[in-house]
């Protein structure tokens, strides 16, 4: 009895598994940039205060920036209603139906329901989870990791990757620091081992401590992003033509 012959070949690929998500994220990024919008991907564990931070930020920047929100939750639209009531200019709900993170194609759909020309900043509130959302680019310019003192100072040790990849870190519930034995030095040392450059803002969404500094930083990021886009949109002047 003859066995069927196998003509074995090895195909070298070396490709990021999430490459097609990255492509969709790049398209989202272009849409944000063209509209002069700063997009912020908000990643935190459940209960760290993602919605509270978004609400406090949009209230702090009420007269300075038009803020929209894309809410990602497993189910329900409680947070979308909350942010609209609190003064968000626009909000869209994504329900992942059990999915533990948002993906770029979900955000792509949501962008069709937002009036991008009327917004300056868009918060994308990811599903509450410190692991799964980390590697899924959504098209954001800023990946925000939100931690809170009540969760403990060892969060960066337990979930290193999100702290390593974030552009900014916000530490919420700073008003509880004494009550929950949060060791600030240990937190900062482990964050800095993972990420030397991301600014860290300490805030309390409850008593508003530190929110102005955080909101001003965010606004400055939005202004630089939008200035870059304006410069790109401007036709070349004579000097540029000669130089090129």
């Amino acid at each position: 009895m003859s066995t069927p012959s196998v003509n074995l070949r090895t195909v070298k690929i070396v490709k990021n598994i999430l490459a097609s998500n990255d492509q969709a994220a790049e398209q989202n990024r272009q849409r944000f940039l063209e509209a002069g919008i700063l997009a912020v991907n908000v990643i935190a564990s459940p209960g760290a205060g993602k919605t509270s931070l978004i609400i406090k930020t949009l209230q702090t920047l009420r007269d300075q920036a038009r803020i929209g929100v894309i809410e990602g939750d497993i189910a329900g639209s409680i947070d979308t209603e909350k942010v609209l009531t609190a003064g968000a200019c626009d909000a869209v709900q994504i329900n992942t139906g059990g999915g533990c993170h948002l993906e770029a194609n979900m955000v792509q759909q949501a962008l069709n329901d937002l009036d991008l020309d009327q917004l300056d900043i868009v918060f994308i509130e990811n599903v509450g989870n410190l692991v799964c959302p980390t590697h899924w680019a959504l098209g954001e310019q800023i990946k925000l990791c939100l931690a809170s003192t009540a969760e403990g100072h060892d969060k960066p040790i337990k979930y290193p990757e999100i702290f390593a990849l974030s552009d900014v870190i916000v530490l919420n519930k700073i008003d509880l620091i004494e009550l929950v034995d949060f060791e600030r030095a240990a937190f900062y040392a482990s964050v800095r081992a993972l990420n030397r450059h991301a600014p860290i803002f300490e805030v309390s969404c409850r008593n508003s401590a530190g929110l102005a500094a955080w909101a001003n930083w965010l606004l400055s990021q939005q202004r630089s992003a939008s200035m870059l886009q304006e410069a790109e949109d401007r036709p070349l002047n004579n000097f540029d033509k000669i130089r090129d």
């Binding site: 196998v6 003509n7 074995l8 070949r9 090895t10 195909v11 070298k12 690929i13 070396v14 490709k15 990021n16 598994i17 999430l18 590697h135 060892d154 040790i157 290193p160 990757e161 390593a164 240990a186 040392a189 482990s190 800095r192 081992a193 993972l194 990420n195 030397r196």
Partner: peptide, 30 residues
């Protein structure tokens, strides 16, 4: 339970190692 160097116990700096998420190759029957 920290990120300190085992020799001098100061805090080191994360390298790029360990962040791969790659399809390297396939073995196929043609």
């Amino acid at each position: 339970d920290d990120f300190c160097c085992p020799l001098c116990h100061t805090v080191g700096q994360l390298t790029a190692d360990g962040s791969e998420l790659l399809i390297e190759s396939l073995e196929i029957d043609v």
